[in-house]
């Protein structure tokens, strides 16, 4: 592996003030939240950005080739560019904080964090994006870090010479499998769908690999093991025989779910758990807006999330003007 040194842009931190009622509180610091923050600062809204991290999914994206202005840019470099732009503006930031509960008390939104802080705002933009989906099968949670992994680039090195399963049929599952081919003697690729959704280039590469055995149309029933993963049980969808595969690692790459739990009791979600929005980012609650991957906007892309973030702030600004 080539040795490189990665340094993210510094985060300036005028932190949140619990005594204030903010004009706008933005939850989430991915492309949607960061763009919303820049627009808010330019509209001179008293703004607080609360986020677990700055960058969101883009931090985990190796390369981006479809964000305008850059023919090619590494994900983390793009995040650095975003941060640079945000730090020019006087926005209060709570970075490393997770929002646990969003509620509305009268006309004012109340935002409670996992760290026990409570912030208030006249308007809120939910821009909390998505996170890895879990299988929800027995053994999965218990064996995280003991063979179950959601980050193949992080954890693949621990599975040298070991048999592993990759769950999923999209690009990230295929990329994980191709990564593991270099070190693992046997890789099972398991997906519930009957046809793979990965790009044709990746499909061709996988088909050439003799180490990879595929099980499309199979459902994972259980991950077994006392202290570490020992095997995985899978079942064909058409009712065939249940199989047990001996593996020491299970890489779960089955897509994403919206981070909307903290707002679930307040706002209307769609079937996928996304915050339902109209085309100006209004949600079912006046003063509450949503943008980017966490919202029901079709298509999840960086440029779309950024555009939605901008739009949400402009709509929130209009709302504040009207409600004055």
């Amino acid at each position: 592996m080539e040795l490189d040194f990665i340094l993210s842009k510094e985060e300036e931190k005028p932190t949140g003030k619990t005594e204030l009622i903010y004009d706008l509180v933005i939850i989430g610091g991915g492309p949607a939240g960061m763009t919303a923050a820049v627009y808010a600062a330019r509209k001179r809204l008293k703004t607080l950005l609360i986020t677990k991290d700055l960058g969101g999914q883009v931090l985990w994206t190796a390369e981006v080739e479809n964000y305008m202005g850059y023919q090619y840019i590494e994900g983390r470099q793009l995040v650095n560019k975003f941060k640079e732009q945000v730090r020019h503006f006087p926005i209060d930031q709570e970075i490393g904080e997770e929002v646990e509960k969003l509620s509305k008390e009268g006309e004012i939104f109340s935002i409670l964090t996992r760290g026990g802080k409570k912030f208030r705002g006249k308007t809120v933009i939910i821009a909390s994006g998505k996170k890895s989906r879990s299988l929800n099968v027995s053994g999965e949670k218990r064996l995280i870090g003991r063979g179950v992994s959601y980050c193949s680039i992080c954890d693949a090195p621990f599975f040298e010479g070991k048999e592993v399963a990759v769950i999923g049929g999209g690009n990230s599952a295929f990329e994980a499998a191709l990564d593991l081919v270099k070190i693992a003697p046997k890789i099972y690729l398991i997906d519930i769908a009957s046809s793979w959704s990965a790009d044709p280039v990746l499909l061709e590469q996988i088909e050439k690999e003799k180490k990879v055995t595929s099980f499309p149309r199979h459902k994972v029933k259980e991950i077994k093991g006392d202290d570490r993963v020992e095997s995985i049980t899978i079942e064909p969808l058409d009712g065939g025989q249940i199989k047990s595969l001996s593996v020491q690692g299970v890489f779960i790459e089955i897509g994403l779910v919206p981070n909307s739990e903290f707002a679930a009791s307040l706002v209307k979600l769609n079937q996928a758990g996304e915050v339902a929005v109209d085309c100006s980012n209004h949600t079912s609650i006046p003063g509450l807006f949503a943008a980017g991957d966490v919202s029901s906007v079709p298509e999840k892309q960086i440029i779309i999330a950024a555009g939605e973030g901008a739009k949400a702030t402009l709509t929130a600004h209009q709302y504040l003007l009207r409600s004055r």
Partner: peptide, 21 residues
């Protein structure tokens, strides 16, 4: 078998990055 893994005083620990509190 997964990182980050935090080991405290040999006998305790946890997997994954936890928030400050």
């Amino acid at each position: 078998m997964g990182v980050p893994k935090v080991v405290i005083n040999e006998e305790f620990g946890f997997e994954g990055a936890l928030p400050e509190t």
